[in-house]
Nucleic acid binder design. Sequence first.
RNA 1: GUGGCCAUAGCUCAGCUGGUUAGAGUGCCUGACUGUGGAUCAGGAGGUCGAGGGUUCGAUCCCCUCUGGCCACCCCA
Length: 421
Amino acid sequence: MPAITRPRGTNDLLPAESGLREWVLATHARVAGAHGYELIDTPVFEATEMYERGTGAGTDVVEKEMFSFTDRGGRALTLRPEGTPGVLRAVLSAHLDQARRPVRVQFAGPMFRYARPQAGRYHEFWQLDIEAIGERSPALDAEVIEVAWRFYEALGVTGLSLQVNTLGDLEDRLRYRAALVEYYTPLQDQLCEDCRRRLGVNPLRLLDCKRDAGLVAAAPHIGPSLSPESQSFFAEVTTLLVAAEIPFQLNPRLVRGLDYYAHTTFELWHESLQGAQNALGGGGRYDGLAEVLGFPPTPGSGYALGVERTLAVCREQGLGPAPRREQVVVLPVAGTDIPAAAAVARQLRAAGITAILDASDRRLDRRLAAGARHGARAAVLVGADEAAAGTATWKDLDSGRQETATVADVAGALRLLLTGQ
RNA sequence: GUGGCCAUAGCUCAGCUGGUUAGAGUGCCUGACUGUGGAUCAGGAGGUCGAGGGUUCGAUCCCCUCUGGCCACCCCA
């Protein structure tokens, strides 16, 4: 009978890796928390319609990448491909924005997209997300970008490139769209097949095309299409970034793949991520999204960062939590010493020490070696002598020093050794 | 969704134009060593050669299908 296999495009988080991810998640929660972003959690599946209307029916995500299903009651549901619409729905339906503006929330969780898996691209992947909802201000956009920047700074990641652009408001975008159509229409027969199709559907996407790079280079920029208000809004954002000493590149070709972005958009690129998967994350302002979802018009700004890609960069740069060897292995000398050794382990745990009881019937020297190899900082031996005297023998596996004392004294000595207090 | 490369012990890999019993290093287990580790020596376990089918006297090797990974598109996290 063939063994069950892991579904395509998914990953198991094994113990060897879980510490690194925990560290990344905790660092993000701390940095975002320091900026006032509070934890929120929303369902992993939502109404399919929310993404069709919010994310946009014409986007690749909605068109061909969603894990959609109907439940037994006939409801059309989708495993969330992105977090923003769900969070906005949760915040607005709970009227959080009535009590306080902006509402600052953060979360981490799995997302699902059915795209062909590749390194850094999976069917199930995790995102770190913050959203600032209820206020339309360039300062908030700059803040969102800064949180992402400070997060990677806190991890110690280097080699980041921050790409920033503005898409203006809805009217600006319509003007820009018209300008692009005007530019591209006479060149239609020079375009690649995809771009010719997209010209009618979503002309902004043509700016993404790598095949038609030559034509893209000469395409009109959005600048002239922006209203004076949009221009000054964006100027304010960049001024604040400069003041915060966050280096960025203005990238007029930066077009995000989701429909709802307006005004500020940004992506974080990393040089070491291979090929097309070079974006660690991105985000921007989504002032029109609430209305599309059927809520009162409410501005918002936020980002999503890829956890797996962040982990890849951390691995490559040798970043991670400070190695901690805070466990102790408790070794009964003989099988008959197991109850006494278990009691000692129990007392150590009560004193706050991580104690692993090795009750296997291997030879003592093998067990001692195995304990050291697997990261124990100290070993505690309990044999007939110790059991009779109510003591234990503890050994510092780095220095080799060892002594026998009462279990309470051993616990104290180990705590000092492990935590320095 | 399109095209290409790949899949052999827990891990990293070798395996000749298709030939008998599929190897190495490392890890794991045991002994040398009745209560003291990272070394050494000796031994042992561990493989449906990703799965299924085909060609052949004979397939890890050739062909087909499937599954999974990777790469390039596409797109993004």
